[in-house]
Amino acid sequence: MKSFVDKKNNHSNMPEIKDLEKICSQVRRDIVRMVHGVNSGHPGGSLGCTEFFVALYFDILKHNPKKFSMDGIGEDLFFLSNGHISPVFYSTLARSGYFEVKELSTFRRLNTRLQGHPTTHEGLPGVRVASGSLGQGLSVALGAALAKKLNKDDRTVYSLHGDGEMQEGQIWEAAMYAAAKKADNIISTIDFNGQQIDGSTEEVLSLGNLRAKWEAFGWEVLEMNGAHIAEVCSTLRKAKERTGKGKPIMILMKTIMGQGVDFMMGSHKWHGIAPNDEQLAKALAQLPETVGDY
């Protein structure tokens, strides 16, 4: 797969959409297989954010997977705040070259670097902060963005958050700071699937008008359909063009929890449970193996 990506990069900075779609199918296979393998983990949000991760790691980010450095000087940085969707994060990191794909089989097993929620503790390349306890990642991404400004490093800091995570107060502390202090080198995205553990966000605690809220806090707000990789790539590009103009950028990404596996789609039921053998077979039948299972 590495050669496949390199070949594309030789021709153009922009990979073909159909190639990205192939990677998405493989990442989705990884997600359901990893979660099935240990009968635990979070497939729903992982499947819904697959296009976002693939677009980011295979198209948008300027990064150095083979030579991971914590400080990431001169590189774009990504922070996953809703750490429970670690399966899609780990699969994408492995598939883009941060570590060997075969390590995905260790997910959530004793002595693994692929902990249930991402951590720096075991030294997994590609992870720069622990996440899982929600609401903290925007502040960390913001701090990293401030460090880039101090270092006169003009790369961008990206972050991803759950929509349920918007219920955490710390998010709004960071939102207020970023706009007030013109942190315009950060592009955050909300996985807007409308679901959380206890039900829909509408039932649990309505988020109200998220776009209006972020605009009121002083952010530039974009929207995209997270299921269409071409749209994800183009929106992330548009967001990148709008950095450096005095405002932090928030993308509301409409997604469907469980995207790509029909019986998992659209329900909070698959937030944090694993498929059984029969369900795994049914899921894999919908997800062609494109670049090789781990």
């Binding site: 000087i73 903290q136 701090g143 101090l150 710390q170």
Partner: peptide, 23 residues
């Protein structure tokens, strides 16, 4: 110097982030 306002959680998170980049 970063004046964070009365928002200690964000201050701690930003401090963690600032270390990424060598601060």
């Amino acid at each position: 110097f970063f004046q964070t306002g009365i928002a200690e959680a964000n201050m701690i998170g930003m401090a963690a982030g600032l270390t990424i980049g060598g601060k």
